[in-house]
Nucleic acid binder design. Sequence first.
DNA 1: ACCTGCGATGTTTACGTACACATCGCACGG
DNA 2: CCGTGCGATGTGTACGTAAACATCGCAGGT
Lengths: 338, 338
Amino acid sequence: MVTSRDVARLAGVSQMTVSRVLQGSTKVAAGTRDRVLAAMRESGYQPNAAARTMRTRRTATIGVVVADITNPFYPQLLEAVGRALGEAGQRMVLWNAPDSGGTSALEALDEGTVDGLLFTTATETSPGLADAVERGQPIALLHRGLDGLDCDQVTTDNVAGGRAVADYLVGTGHTRIGFLAGPDLPATARHRERGFRDRLAELGHPLADPLVARGGFSHDVARSATRDLLSRQDPPTAVFCANDLTALGAVDGAVSLGKRVPADVWVVGYDDIAMTSWDSYDLTTVRQPIADMSRAAVRLLLARIDDRDRPARVEEFPCELVVRGSTAGTPQPSAVDT
Amino acid sequence: MVTSRDVARLAGVSQMTVSRVLQGSTKVAAGTRDRVLAAMRESGYQPNAAARTMRTRRTATIGVVVADITNPFYPQLLEAVGRALGEAGQRMVLWNAPDSGGTSALEALDEGTVDGLLFTTATETSPGLADAVERGQPIALLHRGLDGLDCDQVTTDNVAGGRAVADYLVGTGHTRIGFLAGPDLPATARHRERGFRDRLAELGHPLADPLVARGGFSHDVARSATRDLLSRQDPPTAVFCANDLTALGAVDGAVSLGKRVPADVWVVGYDDIAMTSWDSYDLTTVRQPIADMSRAAVRLLLARIDDRDRPARVEEFPCELVVRGSTAGTPQPSAVDT
DNA sequence: ACCTGCGATGTTTACGTACACATCGCACGG
DNA sequence: CCGTGCGATGTGTACGTAAACATCGCAGGT
């Protein structure tokens, strides 16, 4: 292995001067710098990350925790986060945490493997998360927030999103409206439900319990829940789903019963994943500005790494209803009493 | 920060004994070990990864390079790879390399940030890849192989997969068969095409140039290419697509023209991503054993990290045709001359 | 011509861990 | 009863870098 000492010897300078060139310090004469750079190239020198980290206590690496990478929303978010991190000169370590919620990511943070963590799927039950935040570890939440947690958070106004969908569906004449709720824990799911439910009630069409199905964030569960819902005597004329993956499942549930979207039932999703715009689904949904959000989260996290005592900030981005074919045409009040 | 020295002081032993306990060395008396473990807990000690890496030259981290994480195949592969790495006690650093093909991943390898690299989307043009392999860097290819490269590779028999599709389509009576080719560079796309093309020729129905569309691996390109193909005077009765993402694009292209799959045209994909089994697509495709492949790739890579001089191995897994609704029923020779 | 001051470079050291080697003590055999 | 050997533990050091401090030389002012 070639070390900075070897380069120094080759260039006829001290190791420290090599180190200075490496860091782009201005305190090096142009001629010397050129000599050192030439020696680096000649020897094929590569700085050793571990040694540098040991001295500087920086890894230039951020850990990102995701609950389920096969939910297409997360790859899209990861791409945006990866881009934002790249722009900031940081690498990304990925934890796809099936259930535990990133315990090993927190360990990595304690060990100094990463400089900070970005949780995209935090919940109240994420073990050790609150504890790590209290210890002052640089942790930021992206996408899913946590009300009780005093750390940097970047979210969207999921309550407003849910309300917008309620306004839209009631405004287009629907009265018997179904809801495919997500899991209980994620704040995203809870806020969307709250906004949707409250606004429906305000508009005089409160959600009817029999038309609410609880389930996970998976296609399969949503599909079978929708089959149940649509097989009822008085099926809903529109179904709002806690996220796009479940909305796609809802469409497929309808398709599997030979029903058509939107002719027989309207479907609305949430997140605007790429597939929602594909012809086979053409799904009305709510868009989050994930690129801006990712940049904001990275900015907050890096700022916290530099200054652990700065006050935590919560940034909430607006979201936007995107109307597509899954809610086209007029609703079908004719289907009310069969 | 609590160091092993602090723990040693607290436990009344030397720093070395703490280190030994940490490594699970047997050369520590049970009583001593208990005292050290208690001191660790009490002090909240966390071993420092950078210092350990500096001594051991190991990071227990593997870099994974992916070309496009928004192609749903890669999240599925990443999940499998992540699981295999987790089982082997390794972390995963992710590079989503838009174009450059993982140059910065190779830098990280040189710097010692990762112990090895797993390329899932290598091509001949991946800059620096061949060079790094020749320098003996631990690099393995998963999914996409590279014929000229002397390194560990885990692939599927894409030629056989292409042939199987040709056999299937001709065997079910299709003669005017279209092909949506992937990009030129990936070995996966090339091998699938070769197998498909050669077998069709052997069976007496060579691929007709006008029915071949070249494009990328994206939904949009595939969609518009399919619209062109199906708008011809003599459209194909079946279309084989270089991967599932393009097959979904092909289905959507057909849908956008008001055509039905499989009634108007059969569509076959490749990779068996989760969405292919959803009702709206129900796509016939070719399945790769990605879990087994991931484990194999991780095993090979870790073995190489331990012994850089071991001979490179190439493991080729079989793939399996999965027939679904996109190729159901009889083909439509009636559509031949319109 | 001499002193001052600053820019350029060198010297020393520490970061936290694990390896090589040294040492200690005790059990067992002759 | 003493020597041998081995298991348990300690001592010293090196990994490669960057920070703090020291030093050197030269330009500019008086």
